[in-house]
Design a protein around this nucleic acid. Structure first.
Lengths: 193, 193
DNA sequence: TCTTTCGTAAAATAATTACTGTATAAACAA
DNA sequence: TTGTTTATACAGTAATTATTTTACGAAAGA
């Protein structure tokens, strides 16, 4: 082995170690982010999938994901689909590429708001409906029953439901401020430091 | 059977039906609320437990809960404990009562804020730490590597992490506005209708 | 046309989480 | 003290959810 090749080889080794280090650092961030993604109702594996795509930066195929994560292609398929459903990943096209290409949404404000609003909107809608329905029924019951004890309890319940309605109204306005972006007037993206 | 008793009996039947109706109405609301409580990371059974306690209105014992929900006492014990941990239920005492008494937190604004802030605070803390740690390591790598390709990639990653930091900062200020109650200046509890 | 490649459906397995029954320690009562 | 009652730890079971393997239809290429 001559001096030149020895030198080259050492340089290459160093560079290899540098690349390894990069992936190691990424991995730690991905793991951390993925672990906390259950707040979005996303499972850690799917979270890791998102993180991998996020750092990959460019469109990825299902096969690449499988190689990167060492999981089955089917898992990648379902994982990507669930990420698409919550708009954290979108499909892209590239001329001449046959495989499906997917890319991670990079705007985290957007994903946060998207997730928060859709999840809570649904809950608010369902619950408010149920609450106002119950209110109607209880009012009717209150007017028609002859049992004074029951009447008192029903009145209490009605008060509880009234509180619930007001709470859902507040929550709805909160969600709206996210949907419209009004929230950024109150909490601006850049902190004035 | 004389006329009087017949009359009484009919009145009693009507009253019984009224009470049944009350419980039925409650049940529907409880079910709806419980189902949507997974947004708080609460399982439907535990959600039903909360709902039951909420409508019960006064302190409940584990045995009463078991009777009400038809589940094991152990489940009630662990369920109540988990609700206590997220401050949706608190323990009370009553002179002369030996059993533990628990009561549902009635202020839903409070529980929403409590849940939202503790969950996100933790995630923000963990992730920001990891991100700023990664930033340091990547900066060092950027300065020390000789591979120009790698250097470019590292710079890209650093930019991503910078975005992440800013996002977490925003989220942190959002959470803070909930913690301090400032949010109510922006979204008041009562809507001006 | 036939063959290959791709994505995903469906069934099977693995892993996780929820729930129950039994056992036990602590608190109380007699 | 001894005997009850209460809450919960622990171990086992049931139910749910995540993941993989196999299989197949659709699209693309030869």
């Amino acid at each position: 082995m001559n001096e030149n090749r020895k030198h080259d080889s050492n340089a290459q080794d160093r560079t290899d170690r540098d690349w390894d280090l990069l992936y190691e650092i990424r991995q730690r961030v991905i793991q951390s982010v993925a672990k906390n993604m259950d707040l979005f109702g996303v499972t850690p594996s799917v979270g890791r999938l998102y993180g991998t795509m996020y750092f990959h930066g460019q469109p990825m195929t299902l096969d690449e994901m499988r190689d990167e994560l060492g999981m089955s292609k089917t898992s990648m398929s379902t994982g990507v689909r669930s990420l698409q459903e919550i708009h954290m990943v979108y499909q892209t096209w590239k001329k001449g590429v046959r495989k499906d290409l997917y890319q991670a949404e990079e705007d985290w404000y957007k994903t946060f708001i998207e997730l928060f609003t859709t999840k809570w909107r649904k809950a608010i809608e369902i619950n408010s409906k149920e609450v106002s329905n119950a209110k109607g029924l209880l009012e009717h019951l209150w007017q028609n029953t002859h049992d004074e004890n029951l009447k008192r309890i029903v009145a209490e319940d009605l008060e509880k439901l009234q509180h619930a309605s007001e709470y859902y109204d507040w929550l709805s306005r909160l969600v709206e401020s996210f949907e419209t972006g009004e929230i950024f007037k109150f909490i601006p993206k850049k902190s004035e430091a």
